[in-house]
Design a binder for these strands. Structure first.
Length: 581
RNA sequence: GCGCCUGUAGCUCAACCGGAUAGAGCACCGGCCUUCUAAGCCGGGGGUUAGAGGUUCGAGUCCUCUCAGGCGCGCCA
């Protein structure tokens, strides 16, 4: 609808250009807005004001000229000039009503768009270290990433969702050692447990499983082990324990302990995400980048192009030449690659796999990391503009006024699963994406639960359930409704509430496009609240199951379309559309 | 100290690449169920958009400075 009006204006401007009333303009985009106030018609354009200066004309006069050369159209009732030079467009009523047919014919596909041009797009999100269950902060990234991916798919991008599994690096070694020490404690209670190892009960569970399957295969003598705890520096102490563990067990046995921890936690994460309605096309292993040589390949390529130098025994990347604050270490003095080195390789892999649009969803605390990743892409000639990094602020969990301090290491946290069990999946997902992602989120569990009746998610779902309820009761009242023989006469839908609902329904495809391109799921949330509001108002003023055949059928068609759009929108959010509540 | 983000009604948040009188929910006040679910609807009060300058036909939105809060500034991830 909007596009048709844009086209009309474009044609008018073309004529004006050819008549040299306005100077030739570079194809500036013509903005059309949905009017906020119905007195301003259905759509408004500020084009005359934008062009007034260049055309050296008074905006209102220019608007008049533009209107004069507007091609004839059967969707327009009239146009008006208002305020400083707005052109307001009023649609013919039957133009509004035709949206019902469009929605019902397209069904689940209503709202699909092709602006994405099927561009291969990778959305990477969550990617939490597999060192413990997902907690509330990860949940926000999960909900946000999943909805952004859904929106992009709907907007015509060819989307893959990926979880980057950090199955290499020191944190994972600490996990392995944590499991091992708990395992040793099963038979010897004297063994201490470092405070900077992973404390959670789930570590114990893994140790028990390990013991059940392998008995005493991973035992160690106390004489060698205990002195390692004398080291005073906690970080050095745990590094010493890692080193000892690897030497003592040998590569093969160490890997069994390591993988038992990794796989157990990873499958917990997968299950939790699955229960949360978040699915990935690919689980990408960090270790695979090391094993298949991608990391080395990157370092060689960077070295060849003089992006790397040696200092203090480490290999540094000249990221400061490419917009970063300082240079960054790729290979440490001890010969181990940094996490950043893997990440450079990971982004090379993303490009090599053919993705043209690469979206990373990160916690906002990683924002300092953006410059170096982009710099690495620049240095590897990988077009950093393909990479879009979306930051999600952390969610802070509250129980009433009590702020819950959480850390994976200490094992004190509320997991995503627990949150979901307590608050419910629909409300949890909705709560996470209601707010703009770069805003902090205070997630008060008591509030979320106690307010669950006032939660907007129920408001929207209720609209859907109410419509379903109408159709459940229709047979009891002796009416039928079907479109098999064509649509009813929709021209009888002329009440203010009906027109309002119709124009909101017509906005849906545009909301999807905007939300997708801005990566802003909350736009869809606000739209659905508007739509539900329009429906509830309509419901309160108008009866649907009435004697008049014409009006009844037209109204039923309208609410069928409404139900369809609510369902389409909620499904993008990962929220259910219940038939009764 | 430097960098990034944020500051809008009592509270939680919107405001479509700068547009018309800054909007919702909660809370507060007042109405609406013998009628398809009152988890709903309708109406009302409540604002110097943190503050000060600037840019222009027009600024919550863009620029500069100040104030306040969050985050980041490792050979951790």
């Amino acid at each position: 609808m909007k596009k048709q009006i844009q086209e009309l204006i474009a044609q008018s401007l073309k004529i004006l250009e050819s008549k040299e009333i306005i100077p030739a303009l570079e194809q500036s985009n013509i903005t059309i807005e949905n009017s906020r106030d119905s007195a301003h018609g259905d759509f408004a354009s500020n084009i005359a004001m934008v062009l007034a200066k260049k055309a050296k004309a008074n905006p209102r006069q220019l608007a008049e000229t533009i209107i004069e050369y507007l091609p004839k159209s059967d969707i327009l009732e009239k146009t008006e000039i208002a305020g400083p030079g707005f052109i307001n467009f009023f649609l013919k009523q039957n133009t509004h009503q035709s949206i019902i047919i469009d929605i019902i014919e397209k069904g689940d596909a209503y709202g699909n768009s092709t602006i994405g041009n099927n561009i291969p797009t990778l959305v990477e999100f969550v990617s939490a270290n597999p060192t413990g269950p997902l907690h509330i902060g990860h949940g926000r990234g999960a909900a946000y990433g999943a909805v952004v991916a859904n929106l992009l798919k709907k907007a015509g991008y060819n989307v893959s969702c990926e979880y980057y599994v950090n199955d290499a690096g020191r944190q994972m070694d600490i996990l392995a050692v944590s499991v091992w020490l708990r395992y040793l404690q099963l038979t010897n209670k004297e063994i201490p447990f470092p405070e900077n190892a992973y404390q959670g009960d789930y570590i114990n569970d893994i140790a028990v499983t390990l013991h059940t399957a392998h008995a005493n295969k991973f035992e160690s003598s106390l004489e060698e082990l205990l002195p390692l705890f004398d080291e005073e520096d906690a970080e050095l102490r745990i590094d010493g324990l890692i080193k000892y563990c690897i030497n003592k067990l040998g590569e093969e046995k160490y890997r069994i302990v390591f993988d038992e921890g990794l796989n157990t936690i990873l499958s917990t994460i997968k299950n939790d995400l699955n229960a949360f309605g978040v699915e990935f096309d690919n689980w990408f292993s960090e270790r695979s980048l090391v094993n298949d040589g991608t990391v080395n390949k990157c370092i060689e390529k960077l070295t060849d192009n003089d992006w790397i130098y040696e200092k203090d025994g480490a290999q540094w990347f000249r990221s400061s030449k490419l917009g970063d604050e300082k240079d960054r270490v790729l290979i440490r003095e001890n010969g181990l690659a940094t996490y950043f080195a893997s990440d450079v390789a990971y982004h090379l892999s993303k490009v090599d796999r053919g993705f043209e649009k690469i979206i990373d969803v990160w916690g906002a605390d990683h924002h300092g990391y953006i410059a170096r990743v982009k710099a690495s892409m620049q240095a590897l000639d990988l077009s950093p503009e393909k990479l879009e990094i979306l930051l999600v602020q952390f969610a802070t969990l509250y129980r009433g006024k009590e702020k819950l301090q959480m850390s994976t290491r200490s094992g004190q946290f509320i997991t995503l699963q627990e949150l979901q069990d307590e608050v419910g999946k629909d409300a949890t997902r909705f709560f996470y994406i209601m707010r703009k992602s770069e805003q902090h989120l205070d997630f008060d569990m008591e509030l979320a639960k106690s307010q669950s009746n006032d939660n907007p998610v129920y408001y929207i779902q209720y609209a859907h359930a109410r419509i379903c309820s109408v159709f459940r009761q229709m047979p009891e009242k002796g009416y039928t409704y079907n479109q098999d023989n064509g649509f009813p006469d929709l021209s009888v839908l002329t009440e203010a509430n009906e027109i309002k609902l119709l124009s909101t329904l017509a906005r849906y495809p545009e909301v999807i496009e905007n939300a997708a391109q801005a990566y802003e799921p909350h736009q869809l949330v606000y739209y659905l609240k508007d739509l539900a509001n329009d429906f509830h108002s309509y419901y309160n003023t108008s009866q649907f199951l009435i004697e008049n055949n014409e009006i009844r059928n037209a109204r039923l068609a309208l609410i069928v379309a409404t139900r369809q759009v609510i369902k389409n929108g909620l499904s993008l959010l990962g929220v259910s559309s219940p038939e009764e509540m």
